[in-house]
Design a protein around this nucleic acid. Structure first.
Lengths: 341, 341
DNA sequence: TACCGTTTCCAAAGCGCTTTGGAAAAGACA
DNA sequence: TGTCTTTTCCAAAGCGCTTTGGAAACGGTA
């Protein structure tokens, strides 16, 4: 069943039927209803490829995943993708993934040449981003999950990563902690740099010098959380509080604490950033984990909406989102031990 | 730059240029070269959507991922997808992912109605598969990663999961082990059922009755590996050998052994099935892990090739692959303790 | 009644490719 | 030389949709 036969069934022209279904105003309410009724009963579905050819738009969002990096194995990325894909389906957009064994930029180049996607989404950005320049050169629309130095010039969604570590650090300091360690994400990622700065500044504002021994950075895995925490908690002058870049990492830290017999919430306080990945539920941990919370899935959903608006021609200013995570206080944080109260 | 202008630049018809580029035989070698030369210098790339409309084929492979299940968070699935995507890119196919918040079958229905994909790929099949019936009803081509009872009627790729546990069980029995436990994958999955049978049969062939206390099943996570191993190794009559459904699980089992002070390779032997996911390298473990090995990424690559052949009209018999994993013997296996030698 | 602005519809021209059904040119053979 | 086959090319007709540029019908106003 195609437009032509649907039109002839209705005794209308293709034009009118098409415009009725696409919500144009120059068709009367009566015929509009008649058309959508008929479309439903005949099970008519416009052919996407014909529409794409006619409009020049594909309604497809592209994502590159380079297979050498193990980005795809990162549950955080998957969680983001899940939200993106969910919302995209609702908005009748499709998600296309593509990989190249060499460079990620090759994928973008291919996307641009083939014209299969309208827009691509960038994740895991570093400070030095040639990908962004390439996309701008190729004239390929894109939205960044995260930010770089040149973020004024493009559309992005990000959370206040500076605050993600600044707020809890401030809170811990106010509670009397002054030996605060961080288990950060990959040191090249912008979000990790921002968090590092947030931590450092909060300490400096209180006159505390950041201790290099209290800093670790790497992939946000359970294993790294465990290893880093083991190292740091066995220092002679061990910290009284731990800031983790993810709940998954915090789980590793919990394991280290249990192994070392250090009681969480009293002997050491732990705070993490919570992307709300299903496998790592902060509230269910023992003790429940204090977090700054900002669900990655929501970010994925939002970016789908932004993509749509972008393609509808929205102003760049409306396409720059910065979210502020909420701080959720739970039992994993307490006063520092041996505090002078 | 489109076909029309490329053709006029060359002083040829669109037909000839098109047929030259698509490798038809009715164009002379001389003009064929001239055409491909010109295409390169002008940077011509055929418009995919026009081609799709004209041919009725999209060259897109679809994958559904239901967001309620955490299939996507499973590194095994991702590893498979990576291989699929790599090879698909090489073959000039695209991968489209789509999710629905309700039922996975809705995604297939949408794929079929919209006509955006030529073929879909099914993963993680259970024994009772309504998805397969639906796809057959919808007349939507598909390839299954795994098998069900009705696998004669469709195209699939699978490994000999029966052998995956039968072989090592037989080997362990021959070495003198008779108390062999299994940490299996999700009990509803066909592969887990096959492995269970392989284990049981190998035991029975030797006159050993499978001990229900020695069976555990669940998601193949590190955590489950740890938990299951902890339970089983603290039984009064603990097993001398452990079969794990994945290296990730085995890692958990290793952790349990270390915690309990049980020496791997002498006090307990461990074998796992190795999908070769990058984060879990069996050879790097301590001691190196004995495995039955069949890289999931290879399966993904193979399924991309199968998809292409399917769409080219290959015979169903050529599209049913069964791979036999190789057994790789390493230090995690030894003679049983207190053996009568 | 004539004129004008709205509303409602439609014919036809694309979008950029593939493919059918020849036609012209070239070569083979008698 | 003429006929027949093979090689090489092409005009034109789609594929199924959107969109432009009217045209017809209608109602309101002078």
């Amino acid at each position: 069943m195609n437009l032509k036969s649907l039109a002839s069934h209705l005794g209308l022209s293709q034009t009118t039927v098409s415009r009725a279904l696409n919500g144009y105003s120059d068709v009367s309410l009566a015929t509009r209803n008649r058309v959508s009724e008929a479309a439903k009963t005949y099970g008519y579905r416009p052919n996407v490829n014909a529409r794409r050819l006619a409009t020049g738009r594909s309604s497809v969002i592209g994502i590159a995943f380079p297979t050498d990096m193990n980005m795809f194995l990162d549950p955080h990325f998957i969680e983001f993708l899940t939200g993106l894909s969910e919302k995209a389906s609702e908005l009748d957009y499709d998600i296309m993934i593509s990989s190249s064994q060499s460079e990620e930029v090759d994928v973008y180049r291919r996307f641009a040449e083939k014209g299969t996607v309208d827009l691509v989404i960038l994740s895991n950005v570093d400070l030095s981003e040639e990908r962004i320049r390439l996309l701008q050169d190729l004239n390929m629309p894109f939205i960044v999950h995260g930010r770089t130095a040149t973020c004024d010039s493009y559309s992005y969604i990000d959370i206040d990563n500076y605050g993600v570590f600044h707020e809890p650090t401030k809170m811990l300091l106010e509670m009397g902690h002054d030996k605060i360690a961080i288990l950060n994400g990959h040191p090249n990622r912008v979000y990790a740099i921002d968090r590092l700065n947030g931590w450092q500044d909060a300490l400096k504002e209180r006159g505390v010098t950041p201790n290099p021994d209290y800093m670790r950075a790497g992939a946000m895995s359970e294993e790294n959380g465990y290893t880093f925490a083991m190292e740091i908690l066995q220092l002679e002058d061990r910290p009284t509080a731990l800031l983790c870049s993810s709940v998954v990492m915090a789980k590793g830290a919990y394991r280290a604490c249990n192994e070392l017999g250090i009681k969480i919430g009293s002997e050491v306080s732990i705070v993490a950033h919570d992307d709300n990945v299903p496998l790592a539920q902060a509230a269910d941990m023992d003790p429940p984990l204090t977090v700054t919370r900002s669900p990655l899935r929501d970010a994925g959903r939002e970016i789908a909406i932004m993509a749509m608006n972008y393609l509808k021609g929205a102003d760049i200013k409306e396409l720059q989102c910065l979210w502020h995570p909420e701080l959720i206080f739970r039992k994993s944080v307490g006063a520092p031990p041996r505090s002078i109260t």
